[in-house]
Design a protein around this nucleic acid. Structure first.
Lengths: 189, 189
DNA sequence: GTGAGCATACCGACCGGTCGGTAGGGTGGT
DNA sequence: ACCACCCTACCGACCGGTCGGTATGCTCAC
């Protein structure tokens, strides 16, 4: 539960990192945007990349929880896939800036933290993969296209979403999410 | 038609930008990797971001040409879509580094160049969109999912490809391309 | 001799991070 | 009731180092 100052710093960092990139954003810019001082920032964070770490942690934690919750419902494969995709697209649309930073600057994490995130990401990936494979094994889905390719396609759209999605666009996120889910499910018939 | 020195510089820049990011790569690193000196680099390029510009230009030019060639064949919509996707996936796999840089650092281009690329990108986008819309109008494709969403999904995978594709992986690019095309076409039935 | 193709030495700006210090609110001994 | 003490939160000037870019001059093919 971050305090007000801490939160202002993270919000400003997310906004600036998304708009300009991590390296192109100076600590000075962040503190100016957050209306705090450098002293305050380094009081709460040991280094600039702790900000990145924190941004990723918040995003991943909430998305993992979403997926686990949906799988816990025990729905049929098709409905599970739909629920996962809709929730993922909607939550990504809600947090485009965080996602943009995540996708673009993942590599900037140090070795150890990188490994930690890869593991979590892999788990996330494989949970979704298992749902599709089960659907294929049960005959609910077609097996023409291998499950891992389907997963790649699905995560591909989501991760690219920050490139074109605009909150003030014509299609509300939930409509978009529905279309994407429709298309993926159509491909699995 | 770049000379040998110029080409060495671009190759080194692509490799380093892909591995570390644009801002995290210093001009010193580039000239060291290319085995030239700073004088040589600034003899051929006016600024560091001219390198980015050149990388993008080479990539976009060749991909646009590929797509125009395929459309020129005048095949039925389904085959056109398949050909476009396969050629795009294969050529992206051949140039993962360029694509990674392109996707990650597009924003670093200045306003004017950015506008130029957006226009070219839009044209590319809309050419593919038109193929799908025509297929839907002719009844060859289903219209359940709007064409623009299909385009977003297709380009999503391709742009994310550098994140997971490894040239030494189990699946050769052409197999991968086939699977992706199969899936997209299945979604269009 | 002259211009293309480099090499080398160097510049000022700016960057992430540090550090000595302060403001103010709680706390415990008397 | 009061004050000594401390601790958290924060300030902002400053530092060493690195960065993109430049100025100048050599060399060699034509």
């Amino acid at each position: 539960m971050p305090g007000a100052t801490e939160q202002k710093i993270i919000d400003a960092a997310v906004r600036l990192f998304a708009a300009q990139g991590y390296d192109a954003t100076s600590v000075q810019e962040i503190v100016a945007a957050a209306e705090v001082t450098k002293g305050a920032l380094y009081h709460y964070f040991r280094a600039k990349d702790d900000l990145l770490f924190e941004i990723y942690r918040l995003l991943i934690t909430s998305q993992s929880a979403d997926m686990d919750r949906i799988i816990g419902l025990g729905l049929p494969a098709a409905e599970t896939v739909r629920e996962i995709l809709v929730s993922l697209v909607v939550s990504t649309a809600e947090r485009v800036d965080e996602t943009a930073v995540f996708v673009r600057e993942l590599q900037r994490l140090g070795e150890e933290r990188m490994a930690e995130f890869r593991a979590e990401r892999r788990r996330y990936h494989e949970t979704f993969l298992a749902v599709i494979e089960k659907g294929q094994a049960d005959g609910e889905f077609s097996s023409v296209v291998p499950a891992d390719t389907v997963v790649r396609i699905a995560f591909g759209v989501v991760n690219q979403l920050p490139m074109w999605y605009r909150p003030d666009g014509a299609k509300p996120p939930v409509a978009l999410a529905g279309e994407i889910a429709d298309f993926v499910l159509a491909g699995l018939r």
